[in-house]
């Protein structure tokens, strides 16, 4: 049983079976208050799915991109839950989960998952079709873009005609803009299920599981220390 956690936008927790069947979803759309709701969401998802913590075999963690503070709470929770049970964390980029949900809804053309990254910026990842495991194929991003520019004119969204295209062969297509306001934890769990089914295994490399902050800490080195000599 996979427990999936994401707090990069709202807060969502889901329980997904190894074959991808969704057992329960608990969510809070509040884009603040992640720390307040995370414990209750975990408890509710487990209860709704009728499983105990001991039944959980993997924890899927939404790694962002997202606003710093909220994103971290879900990752910290995912890691701590996994540590408590001695089970692995499967790191999943949040946009991949959103893209899977979009593909499952019938999308065929290339599209860009666009989420609020705060500070008048959006995080953008471009996908085109599915890979051999049925997961969304990422072709560009994630990158930050000012939220008041026309994304359609952005080269990031220009996708070369490839295997997934059946029409404009040889040319370029512009990805459809898909604004996303919540990373669906059920899709996150299904991405993890698919990764596990195709042989994903933890490497123990922390670098591989780092959050996708997309920004450096907002800090500047102050004035050089004043020199004082005796």
């Amino acid at each position: 049983m996979i427990l999936a956690v994401d707090t990069s936008l709202g807060s969502t927790v889901a329980i997904v079976e190894p074959d991808g069947a969704v057992r329960a979803v608990a969510r809070s759309e509040n884009t603040l208050g992640h720390a307040e709701v995370i414990g209750t969401l975990l408890q509710r998802a487990l209860a709704d799915a009728g499983v105990s913590p001991a039944d959980v075999t993997h924890v899927a963690a939404g790694m962002g991109p997202g606003a710093f503070t909220g994103l971290r709470i879900g990752i910290a929770a995912a890691r701590a839950f996994a540590l408590g049970r001695g089970i692995p964390v499967v790191p999943v980029p949040g946009h991949v989960a959103a893209a899977l949900a979009h593909l499952d809804a019938g999308a065929t053309a290339p599209f860009a998952v666009v989420t609020d990254a705060r500070r008048r910026e959006n995080a953008v990842t471009v996908f085109d079709g599915r890979d051999a495991n049925g997961l969304p194929r990422r072709v560009a991003g994630p990158e930050l873009r000012a939220n008041d520019v026309d994304l359609a004119a952005d080269p990031l969204l220009s996708v070369a005609a490839g295997p997934a295209s059946d029409g404009a062969r040889g040319g370029a297509r512009t990805a459809e803009v898909v604004p996303v306001t919540e990373i669906p934890a059920d899709a996150l769990g299904r991405v993890a299920a698919s990764m596990l089914a195709s042989g994903w295994a933890p490497t123990g490399e922390l670098a591989e599981t780092e959050p996708l902050y997309l920004r450096s800490p907002d800090v500047t080195v102050g004035h050089a220390p004043k020199k004082v000599r005796a």
């Binding site: 956690v5 707090t7 992640h34 720390a35 995370i38 414990g39 975990l42 408890q43 487990l46 913590p53 959980v56 971290r72 709470i73 879900g74 910290a76 929770a77 995912a78 890691r79 701590a80 839950f81 996994a82 540590l83 408590g84 049970r85």
Partner: peptide, 9 residues
């Protein structure tokens, strides 16, 4: 966040 998840798990 970590403490809540650890307690639940």
């Amino acid at each position: 966040g970590a403490a809540k998840a650890l307690a639940v798990s």
